[in-house]
Write a protein that binds this DNA or RNA. Structure first.
Length: 435
DNA sequence: TCTGGGGTCCTAGGACCC
DNA sequence: TCTGGGGTCCTAGGACCC
């Protein structure tokens, strides 16, 4: 048996904890560069603002509908997330943190009334950190996901699709009298099932598969042939056959990336070199945080694909490192060499990124014959000192020279017009309580 | 005028091997 | 006119997730 705990409209809820005046109002949180909506309050959803709606399409609604738009504050959300996860871990013996706002809890061997436990946990999360969440319980991860979807939909739109008794906490293995699993599955569009995206939805539709119940009753081998093993697994999971294990030990990452769209298009090489240096440094830092090293560095640049009238350009290149490395200097150098190889003048570059590939555990050391004393120098202590300084005095205190001077000298940084303070992670931003 | 970032997995096809 | 079988590895592209 699994539970899925998921913060409702998580980013919006985090903002509301520190600005209660946002309660009851339509609120959207925007992606980096204030590009599009990545979280919406229930009121914003009711206005028809969809996930991923470009901000320029919402803008007109701001004044008359009273929509509040905020820039994403990932530092705040990350900190609130660790608090949520710590509390949610109390629900059962195993936890898989699946994303910033949701985790699976393994419930095997839990005594007592699981539904009551879940209800109490939900209250505790709300009381301790102010985040409303939905909890779904099911015999497989896919069913727990579906139960969670039901819990949230039934709360937001009581009796629209599901009985309001299923709101907030929903256990598909113990439905209330007069409500069957088949009814719940039949009320759920196939598109709302975990693992069924827009493309598959359209293809399944053509085969007459429209609801989760249709999917659960479909012939698994046929679906495997037509759509592959993932869809087959989803079908089996919907029937209660556990195919996806709980991963309470996160598997090591296979790649680490830092990619950004620019606040304004970039036409010249110099700012691109600054940006790529900055992204490569950030990626190298993440690499060291998880004690891994990279063997290859991919760098890419491209124009804005939405601007059809612009001349389009997109290229990437993968640069091998001489040996697996977590050294910022080596990684930045490789990224800059790659950039020079793919750079062409005459385009409005919209986005660039650095992706570190072929990651290896930092504990694994490949012995080799040293022929070149310069490259043999051990960068470990230097990187450790760099990370300590930046941790103590703030990110960017010490950085590679090629990333530029920072501040206003950087023309390419992203737009964040409405970012809220880092209430929980920065002394200067600490909220003040007034009597 | 304005459209995010960071991941994972699967599959098909080509190169190459014996 | 006739032209094997069975592998592995790599890459690009597609699909999905939040």
């Amino acid at each position: 048996m699994h539970a899925l705990v998921d913060g409702n409209n998580f980013y919006v809820s985090c903002e509301r904890v520190f600005r209660p005046s946002l309660n009851g109002r339509p609120v959207v949180v925007l992606s980096n560069n204030d590009g599009c909506a990545i979280a919406r309050s229930n009121e914003a959803k009711a206005l028809g603002i969809r996930m991923g709606t470009p901000f320029h399409d919402i803008r007109s609604q701001l004044p008359d509908a009273g929509v509040v738009a905020l820039s994403a504050n990932f530092t705040l959300y990350g900190d609130m997330s660790s608090r949520l996860m710590a509390i949610a871990a109390g629900l059962g013996p195993a936890q898989e943190i699946y994303s910033i706002d949701e985790c699976f809890i393994g419930l095997h061997g839990m005594p007592g009334d699981l539904l009551q436990r879940a209800v109490r946990l939900r209250e505790r999360v709300l009381r301790w950190i102010g985040i409303p969440c939905g909890i779904g319980i099911g015999s497989t991860k896919t069913l727990a996901k579906l139960a969670n979807h039901v819990a949230k939909d039934a709360e937001r739109r009581p009796d629209a699709r599901y009985p309001s008794a299923l709101a907030q906490v929903c256990d598909l293995s113990r439905l209330p009298a007069g409500c069957t699993l088949d009814q719940v599955l039949a009320a759920t569009p196939a598109a709302d099932v975990w693992g069924i995206g827009p493309r598959l939805t359209a293809q399944l539709e053509r085969d007459g598969i429209r609801t989760a119940l249709d999917l659960a009753r479909a012939d698994a081998p046929t679906l495997r042939r037509r759509f592959g093993v993932i869809v087959e697994r989803t079908v089996r999971e919907l029937r209660g056959e556990a195919c996806i294990q709980l991963e309470d030990l996160p598997p090591p990452k296979k790649e680490v990336a830092c990619t950004r769209a620019f606040g304004v298009p970039v036409r010249t090489l110099a700012p691109l070199q600054e940006a790529v240096s900055d992204y490569a440094s950030r990626a190298a830092f993440k690499l060291r945080q998880q004690r891994t090293r990279a063997s290859q560095v991919l760098v890419f640049i491209h124009t804005n694909p939405f601007r059809r009238s612009d001349k389009q350009y997109a290229r990437s290149i993968t640069m091998p490192l001489r040996r697996p490395s977590g050294d910022t200097a080596a990684i930045v150098q490789a990224a800059l060499r790659g950039l020079l190889a793919i750079w062409q003048p005459g385009y409005r570059i919209h986005k660039a990124g650095v992706i570190l590939l072929d990651l290896q555990d930092a504990g694994v050391e490949q012995g080799e014959l040293e022929l070149d004393a310069a490259t043999a120098r051990e960068a470990g202590p230097l990187m450790a000192a760099l990370d300590r300084l930046n941790d103590r005095y703030g990110r960017g205190t010490v950085q590679v020279g090629s990333a530029g001077l920072g501040g206003d000298a950087r023309t390419w940084t992203m737009k964040q017009q409405w970012r809220t303070p880092q209430y929980t992670t920065c002394w200067d931003d600490l909220p003040v309580a007034r009597a």
